[in-house]
Design a protein around this nucleic acid. Structure first.
Length: 505
RNA sequence: GGCGGGAUAGCCAAGGGGCAAGGCAAGGCUCUGCAAAAGCCUUAUACGUGGGUUCGAGUCCCACUCCCGCCUCCA
């Protein structure tokens, strides 16, 4: 790869259209995504943007761009303060605890770390400087110890969300706060209240409002006109709308961001998954039951802008599909290893054009690479990208099933298929395990001693069963298989001997 | 009330003027001691409803119904 001809198109929320992606700086891409407010455990709704933007940066990197990725932590916030007061410990301790938890959860999901994780509490001077400048330029005003942004001072207000200030006046939920000139004005700086963390400022002790941090920190780390700003669809208004207003008023130079990317929300029973509705599932709970690669598959099996319904039925169906991909990936590796045990992983050499040319599979491999890239280039169409992997898997299985001799061009093409699966399924999407031999237990994160013992016991039983089968004592053999089945262990007989795995559902 | 998105097979889900991807489920067959896995085949003349534009409409336009999100903290 490495070819970055202008073929990548992305949906820009600002224009609601697919646009050709051309970064600000040749060869480099800057991305800022809104991270979390760390006051509680992270759930699947937080994992979706994390995994999606993880794939975005991996894909951009694979296309030869150098990516700089920044994701913030809003570590100064009402909910953090509330929890801190409830638990009687400092607010920053709460936020540090849950920020660490978030990072651990995302690590477990295979999300690569951002280059920087700026926190509000560590960027107060940058924020104060920005607020002061906005006051100076007449875009903000001081009211008591608070500072508000004056939305009417910014003509473009509403351009991201399509809201109009006049219409919002009529809205039932907008109220004029005390000290606000316009109901849509929002706080840049809040005066300190007793018991809350606060910092000194030209307007007295206080803390930053919600929206200003992202403007201040993204501009600080990525500069003006950076490439991609991401986040959940629920942040479009008011958060990102306000970011644009502040930032462009501050710099006097639009656009603040070149491309706005928003991911759809995770729902359960068609309702948004959220802490307040109590219909969420934590990443930790999910990881106890499912491998990280499967969770990523689940998240990427729907286009990023669409809602993703999370429920038992969808989960089971997705699980079966993912398993087929996984089993195919494992079988492919096994077969190649028996034929050429010394071949190192991912030769890379076997993917060149013309390699294994006389094998039909070589054509499928080439097609898969093309189709995959076309899908990803078309606004990150991961569902279609995944479907190309299914098609490749079917071709590979078909070949293996045909009994064709694994030699010459056929073997070369098979190795190319393996390399491509690794490149796309493992390294790019992260939906397949890097180690194809990894066994997927019911609790992959569980005690290793127990799993080691379990494994030995299962293998012992299978040896006993093999003896029975050799004696053609199928009653005994089936009894063992049924008993294992009752424990959720699937036994499969293959020409190379029995194989087992935990049933996934 | 304002703004935005959506309705595609039994289920999930791409596509978005010219023969309807992929997955799950279901049925048949092959392989197998039997299974499982895998393969092959079958499964959308009705793409929410009614109009319209067009040689041609899931795809564009209008109206309507229902669903979701945002407008309060939210990924």
């Amino acid at each position: 790869m490495g070819d970055r001809s202008e073929s990548l198109r992305v949906t820009n929320t600002l224009t609601r259209q697919k646009e050709v992606f051309i970064p600000r700086d040749e060869g480099r891409v800057s991305i800022y995504t809104c991270g979390v407010t760390p006051y509680d455990e992270s759930h699947l709704g937080h994992a979706r943007p994390a995994v999606f933007f993880d794939v975005v940066r991996r894909y951009l990197a694979s296309r030869g761009w150098q990516v700089r990725y920044v994701q913030n932590f809003t570590d100064v916030d009402d909910k953090i303060i509330a929890r801190a007061q409830r638990e009687g410990i400092p607010a920053l301790e709460i936020s540090r605890r849950y920020a660490d938890e978030y990072l651990a959860a995302m690590d477990a999901l295979g999300v690569r770390r951002a280059d920087v994780y700026p926190k509000v509490s560590e960027h107060i001077p940058v924020i104060i400087e920005m607020v002061a400048r906005l006051v100076e330029k007449g875009h903000a005003y001081v009211s008591g110890g608070d500072v508000y942004f004056a939305v009417e001072s910014f003509p473009g207000y509403g351009k991201l969300s399509g809201q109009r200030l006049e219409e919002m006046m009529a809205g039932a939920r907008v109220e004029v706060g005390e000290g606000k000139r316009h109901p849509a004005d929002f706080a840049l700086w809040k005066a300190a209240r007793p018991g809350e963390p606060s910092w000194q400022s030209p307007w007295g002790p206080g803390r930053p409002g919600w929206h200003i941090e992202c403007s201040a920190m993204s501009l600080h780390y990525l500069g003006n006109h950076f490439d991609i700003h991401g986040g959940g669809l629920d942040l479009v208004f008011p958060h990102h709308e306000n970011e644009i207003a502040q930032s462009e008023a501050y710099t006097g130079d639009a656009p603040f961001v070149r491309y706005w990317l928003h991911n759809g929300l995770v729902t359960t029973r068609a309702e948004k998954m959220s802490k307040s509705l109590g219909n969420f599932i934590t990443v930790r709970a999910l990881l106890k039951e499912y491998p990280a690669e499967f969770i990523r598959y689940l998240l990427l099996s729907v286009h990023y802008r669409s809602p993703l319904e999370f429920g038992a039925d969808a989960l089971a169906a997705a699980r079966r599909g993912w398993e087929r991909l996984l089993l195919g990936w494992q079988e492919l590796n096994r077969r190649l290893e028996t034929v050429m045990p010394s071949l190192p992983q991912a030769t890379g050499a076997a993917t060149g054009p013309g390699i294994g040319a006389t094998s039909p599979l070589a054509g499928v491999v080439r097609q898969t690479r093309e189709n995959f890239r076309r899908a990803m280039d078309d606004d990150w169409n991961t569902p279609v990208a995944i479907s190309t992997l299914f098609e490749l898997t079917r071709s590979v299985n078909s070949l293996l099933h045909s009994g064709a001799e694994l030699a010459g061009d056929t073997l070369t093409a098979l190795a190319a298929a393996r390399d491509l699966m690794r490149e796309l399924g493992v390294e790019l999407l992260g939906i397949l395990p890097a180690d194809p031999h990894r066994a997927f237990g019911a609790s992959a994160a569980g005690g290793t001693d127990d799993t080691a013992i379990t494994t030995r016991l299962i293998e012992l039983l299978l040896e006993v069963r093999e003896d029975a089968r050799r004696r053609r004592d199928f009653v005994q053999a089936d009894r063992i298989r049924d008993a294992l089945g009752a424990c959720g262990i699937v036994v499969e007989d293959t020409p190379a001997g029995p194989r087992w795995r935990f049933r996934g559902d």
